[in-house]
Design a protein around this nucleic acid. Sequence first.
DNA 1: TGCAGGCATGACAACGTTGTCATTTTTGGG
DNA 2: CCCAAAAATGACAACGTTGTCATGCCTGCA
Lengths: 344, 344
Amino acid sequence: MARSSDSNPAATPDGRSVTLNDVARAAGVSLVTASRALKKPALVSPATIEKVQRAVQATGYIPNLLAGGLKSNRSMTVAALVPYIAVPQFLPTLQALTETLDEAGYQLILGQTGYNRARENALLNTMITRRVDAIVFAGLLSPDAPLAQLTRLGIPVVETWDLTARPLDMLVGFSHTQVGSSVGGFFLKRGWRKVGIATADDERAMQRCQGFLSVMGDQVPVWKVKAPSTLAAGRHALAELLKREPKLEAVFCSSDGMANGLLIEARERGLRVPEDLAVCGFGDADFAAHLSPALTTVRVDGAEIGRQAARMVLARCRGETVPERVVDVGFRIIERASTGQAKD
Amino acid sequence: MARSSDSNPAATPDGRSVTLNDVARAAGVSLVTASRALKKPALVSPATIEKVQRAVQATGYIPNLLAGGLKSNRSMTVAALVPYIAVPQFLPTLQALTETLDEAGYQLILGQTGYNRARENALLNTMITRRVDAIVFAGLLSPDAPLAQLTRLGIPVVETWDLTARPLDMLVGFSHTQVGSSVGGFFLKRGWRKVGIATADDERAMQRCQGFLSVMGDQVPVWKVKAPSTLAAGRHALAELLKREPKLEAVFCSSDGMANGLLIEARERGLRVPEDLAVCGFGDADFAAHLSPALTTVRVDGAEIGRQAARMVLARCRGETVPERVVDVGFRIIERASTGQAKD
DNA sequence: TGCAGGCATGACAACGTTGTCATTTTTGGG
DNA sequence: CCCAAAAATGACAACGTTGTCATGCCTGCA
């Protein structure tokens, strides 16, 4: 990868790299015209465009987005801040976000907050320094975030995967409390009273937990693990919950991976699912429907969250105002075999 | 998020945003000194640094990395190109890469190639346009990639998760063919002759498949699915393989998720694992050890790949030469219950 | 044929920082 | 107390593009 100075089609004779200026000279037009031919072809005659494109080929010109971004103050870059890249729930969102933005020429800059407010703020500052055109955040921003900077610079912010009446700027998500109470209601309707909850300790999972407890009562045994939750944590969770409530009838898990662990642990212990123990997960991961028994879970359209967030970001980057700044994508309990048949 | 012009501590009276120039003026030093105070404190007296930092506070200065990057020709940005963000195997690599680079002030720009060479090349060009300081690629670059550009600009490239004697630039990975033949050898030693392979159709999985077949023979039934493989695909795969070879003794899967599917399907069909059917996965996902039976699989240290790639990238960005341009992180077959006890 | 209006192009400055070289100030040894 | 060397600071230009305004040209209509 050494920079060869001889016979290098992308370097001018004196070694500098090829700039738009060189292209313009080669095409016999002015710098501005060359710029326009490439970026705003509508303003340039077809013949000139042709000339410029030929010159681009001949010189091996490679545009420099940094330079353009400096003047136009647009980096064509969007920051995506998540706790960890590997948190399964956010993956469809990240994927859809990346794809949708890419189609519009925007790229994603990734940041991992590690469920850590200090890092979150540090990352926000980093992204501001990079003059990202927008920020998409997994969750709600903390009140002590460097909001002032964001507001100052007018950087659009989309909070996701949560719900609040007064978002910082824009929001795409759903109510975790409501998820919890819905699952609680579902359990009640099935007549289960000896229930438990196995949950990660992140903010959103705790909201689901609270919603669940608000319906099921505070005496419900709660097994809490450090986020992100795993299959192994799920196996352990069932063991712990059974210690506290040997006659456990149903468990609500804060992720499908964890629920998968519960299914496995239940089988190991000779507990039949759903006859002896019902299990409900969260997220409707791709594998949930194919477990045995198929897993009842809460479906959230993570990809849709990503698409909507991208849509909002792009609109704002085009200078439009986004009318509905809060989008509730909702959720749905998907009943499968792990909670048996409805008895009504 | 409206840009308020009044009482805005980050905007000068005339509405421009605060630049280093304003800081310098406020601190009573020159522009260059202010720059150095913030970026190269070793060259500036402590008293001046103090003054400048105070001025930064007072003015609410926010640096602009784009501007600096233009002059210094360093974007403090590294591109990571993967097939899809959600491919589980790459997640630990991405996570480690992000973390390690972040510590050095570099951020990751994400690109999804979608197992598509055309998109791959388009993305490479995009990243070059963005003047990323390096590119980390999941897999090997295709020969028709815009290599010339990369070489021209001297952009460091790290190919990962594969092995070749002559990488484009640098490489961290391991031999998939060898993985396949190792697992084949392992199966042979156990005396299994009626074996099958369930594999995704991406390049690397196909290499593992070839390695496996080179040891086990070409008559082995192969069930191929579109990458990325899933649990559902695994369930289906077992059904298909049993059609072709009803007395199947062992199956090698191209991912742990797929293997999980095989375990489930086997149980559904009343096949005991490992007594009736042995299963080996690939990747040693976090759940592999906690399945029932625990899954025999091939462990690859994905996080280490990420760290090594980051190490190489950072070294090159510091202008150092990287002596060992090819790092083989190897792999290990982790024997667990899904392949039973060794009989020797 | 003359002129308004639109289209195509060009000149110039600017974006906010950093590299380079020059200059001033300080320090330490004789 | 002086001078050489080092430390600290400053002036200027440059990075490569785009925004703004100005200008030349041509088309079509009166």
